[in-house]
Amino acid sequence: MKNNIYDKYLVEEKMPTMWCPGCGNGIVLQSIIRAIDEMDLDPEKIVFVSGIGCSSRAVNYLKFDCMHTNHGRAIAFATGIKMANPELKVIVLTGDGDCASIGGNHLIHACRRNIDLTVICMNNSNYGMTGGQYSPTTPLNSFTKTSVYGSYEPPFDLCDLTKSAGATYVARCATYLPVQMKDIIKKALNHHGLSFVDCASDCPSLYGRLNRLGDAGEMMLRWKDRLVSVTQSQKMSEEELKDKVIWGEFVNKSDRMEYTDIYKENIRRAKEAAHE
């Protein structure tokens, strides 16, 4: 592995990763480093922050400033980093359990503030690290270690959630579309405000096995018929969209001030008041 982007951004001696064969997390991580490389960002000005779970182990392989925090808390730590030095690009690597369950409050409040963080959720519809229990994004009626008769908990659509909470860039992609995923991540990294990318991903060892979805290859091919772009979806009925996963941009706007900019305004007002 010489003279290539893996060598440039990944810690060789920590390889291979601890992820199971076919785990989508590696595909998401690859898309992220390709996005950073194509954008020619200064690696010294990037900080990765993660929580707990399979997704969050991604920071163990990155040659960047990295903070592997507590379960659900990555966004809170990242908020402190960004506010302490707004020049830094702060990227949160998280999973569906980490950001939508235990860290759900931090996620919606970061969206409300519209603080310039890029939150990348590796969404594999279950808790992988603890052995495959249902998460807040597990589809209804699917099988996990804690929903052996089929899941009875209605799932979150994380794009709807972050959009409603005020994120100014919201998109979804899937590991089946890694090039598109890289392009979406580039846009998210370029966005000034809270950007959220939901990366639909597979957990072949647990979710896949428990739901008899075949091996990693078969699970990958299943996406082909399930993915529908935002544009395509607008022409489809609710019935036709059943069991489909819509990918693409849901929100991309700049009509709200970003939080570190708002705070600079607060400093200006405070100093003005001091002079009066």
Binding site: R73, A76, G80, I81, A84, N105, H106
Partner: peptide, 14 residues
Amino acid sequence: LASIGAIIGASATG
């Protein structure tokens, strides 16, 4: 939880 998380992030950033 977020309060102490944020100050940890800020302290690590100087």
